[in-house]
């Protein structure tokens, strides 16, 4: 198929960006979206044009590195996938595809479509862990975890930290991301000991970094490639309120 790509180009964090259009032809429907950009880039290099910079790594939907806002949706027009799993069969011959970087204050653009998501790491550094030193653990079966809790915890732990929730939210709120980690750990008996400190510290960091507040629109859940539920946000609110009230 033949397409027109309208891509955000920005030389560096400080530079002013703008959209550029690139025609591209003979794209197979079985080609993945990122492979399509590879093809474009190979052509651009041959034409002496700086290739489009974009984040990607595992290309199988698990590392969370890819991050494009395609035609108004994070990770593009398909459900429960990352951009690297998006295939060109989702588009039609002659389409114009608009590709933008994640837009959020705490995710500044580094170059073109690449944003800095270090803010996520910073939030997790402020409490997204269980304090257990190596070598001090009891036998793994000494802690009984009912199947239901283990499964719910796993549902939340499936978060890949891609930032689609922030990109989709009209408020650039990071609540789904934070709540996924809070839920993952708070649902496990091992994680309960420091659940209150964790919730307070992570929420404080999230606010400090300039993410918006949650107004429960549900856009995050709708766009999450791993189907993380907003019921985790309710759990985060519960954990947080209890932590504040019981203090």
């Amino acid at each position: 198929m033949d397409l027109t790509l309208k891509i955000w180009r920005q030389a560096s964090a400080k530079a002013k960006g703008k959209f550029e259009s690139y025609p591209i032809s003979n794209i197979s429907a079985d080609c993945s979206f990122l492979e399509m950009i590879d093809i474009l880039n190979e052509k651009l290099v041959r034409d002496n044009i700086d290739p489009v910079a974009f984040d990607h790594d595992c290309r199988e939907g698990i590392c969370g590195m890819c991050s494009l806002y395609v035609n108004g949706r994070p990770h593009g027009p398909d459900d429960d996938i990352t951009t690297c799993q998006l295939h060109m069969r989702k588009f039609k011959n002659g389409d114009t595809i608009t590709i933008e970087p994640w837009r959020a204050g705490p995710f500044p653009v580094i170059k073109d479509l690449i944003v800095d998501r270090n803010a996520f790491d910073k939030i997790l550094q402020d409490g997204g862990f269980i304090s257990a030193n190596t070598g001090s653990a009891p036998d793994a079966n000494a802690i009984l975890i009912p199947n239901r809790e283990a499964e719910q915890s796993m549902d939340a732990a499936a978060c890949i930290g891609c930032g689609a929730c922030v990109a989709a939210c009209k408020n650039s709120s990071a609540m789904l991301f934070v709540s996924a980690k809070i839920s993952h750990l708070a649902l496990l008996p091992q994680g309960k000991a420091e659940a209150a400190i964790r919730a307070k510290a992570m929420v404080a960091k999230m606010d400090e970094l300039g993410f918006g507040g949650c107004t429960n629109t549900g856009a995050c859940e709708a766009e999450c490639p791993k189907d993380i539920s907003i019921s985790n946000i309710a759990r985060l609110n519960r954990e947080f309120l209890c932590a504040v009230i019981l203090e």
């Binding site: 806002y69 108004g72 608009t98 837009r103 408020n171």
Partner: peptide, 25 residues
């Protein structure tokens, strides 16, 4: 606060799969 959290707006936006109510409170 929420507006400040997105200094640059999107060119194309679909509001994902959300209700008009929630987007326009």
């Amino acid at each position: 606060k929420n507006r400040a959290a997105r200094p640059v707006k999107y060119e194309v936006s679909t509001n994902s799969d959300t209700s008009w109510s929630s987007q326009n409170m």
